[in-house]
Design a protein around this nucleic acid. Sequence first.
DNA 1: CGGGATTTTGACCGATTTCAAAGTACGTGG
DNA 2: CCACGTACTTTGAAATCGGTCAAAATCCCG
Lengths: 256, 256
Amino acid sequence: MHTGGDSRTPLQLYEFRKACSSCSLRELCLPVALSGLDIDALDKIVKRKGPLQKGDKLIRPGQPMTALHAVLSGSLKSSTQDMNDEEQIIAFHLPGELIGLDAIGSGKHSSTTEALETTSVCSIPFAELEALAHKIPSLQHQLLRIMSREIFDDHELLQVSRRPAEQRLAVLLLNFSQRFGRRGMSRTRFRLPMSRQDLGNYLGLAPETTSRIFRRFVIQGLLSATGKEIELLDLQALHGLKEESGGNTDLHAKRS
Amino acid sequence: MHTGGDSRTPLQLYEFRKACSSCSLRELCLPVALSGLDIDALDKIVKRKGPLQKGDKLIRPGQPMTALHAVLSGSLKSSTQDMNDEEQIIAFHLPGELIGLDAIGSGKHSSTTEALETTSVCSIPFAELEALAHKIPSLQHQLLRIMSREIFDDHELLQVSRRPAEQRLAVLLLNFSQRFGRRGMSRTRFRLPMSRQDLGNYLGLAPETTSRIFRRFVIQGLLSATGKEIELLDLQALHGLKEESGGNTDLHAKRS
DNA sequence: CGGGATTTTGACCGATTTCAAAGTACGTGG
DNA sequence: CCACGTACTTTGAAATCGGTCAAAATCCCG
């Protein structure tokens, strides 16, 4: 049984050393021009975690925030629960992305983070990262940049959440397209790792609505979808949709 | 004529020295236990800005982000514009709060920030703040905490934006109550500095809807409102509203 | 006191949710 | 390897919340 946070044997631990220096995601999770020496220093504090299986929880609400996590492979979702069992998904995490930035302030995690598929992450003890950042100015700078970018992204998300359902889905698809593209994968063909339900939840839509809009997009020839496999067929149109104000100037985006 | 960013005369500049050490908001904008010496260092890089009048813009989209701004008095709103002239308000800024954290990543501001009333702020050149943070570990720590908290708050906001209108307004009112309370003012009587329109925009609601829900709240005895002056009469109920899932289990709503 | 902007109110309309149910994928155990 | 059960997805029809339009009332500031 995999429970995710298993401790590794010494041999495995040894193999996991030198994580950052050989990690293909290095430039993604901390996209900084660190010198070889600095990377070594980072290596020393990072711990790779054994694979999580689908549904395994990396973080539970209330846990003290001791480390940030960087996704190596697979994917996760973070969510909160509003007492009536209603899950509220806050974010999806793809390889190369950092988890836990929202918990630095309080020192405690407030959300649940669980794997959407078989996933591995590495842990960066926060106290040591902070100490290291103090020694390496460029690392401090990079941390601030990464956090700032998350704030920026959240603000964009906030904008989107006020728009009609079609635009929300279009924006989400383009967002994933970009995030996959950034790590060298296809921008037009990819696998959405989460269920339609989770997708709807994230977008603030009922699953039924999500499903309907997906179908609408397929009919309009914007994309094709076979289960979780997505192919974007008309990036232009999706981009167009994203900016439309919905009611006035929408003569070139849809037909009923 | 006040245009906000005016350079001050030497005399005035002198008076503005020692800003942080005597600033009653010190613990709010950078709530860190800085030693007297550290405060002096911070003082040296901070510049107080002449008062902005209502509508004056502190930040315009595209401007390079050279400094963070802390609100001393008054209030501001940050918004973007989606090509069809449609304003999208992202945040309101009250005294003791920091502006510009979302622009560190890109180095450019992407939103407009303008005063909602007569307002004064102080500027903290970012490069120097970063350098200072490198020297003073507790300042670095504090910066990370503040940014983390903003991420956390944005996530909460995101949750709210997916809920029915009533809950959104309830959450906003409680949010302002808390923010005013934090700076020593009444949690139950305060002045909302923005128009109902801005409020609606921020919440993703039509102004008409905002108005109706306000009235509903008044009728239900949750609050009384005379123009922008608000008095919250039943914090309990508002808190209850905030968590309700709307229609099903609303029998155990009051009590915290 | 006057004129324009903002807020409020009412009636109507539409997008999205909800409810209900059928169809489909998928993991488990036989 | 196939059958079964559960969970997820899709589809349809009805109900609802919030948006839009229009107009009246109020506020604000000079």
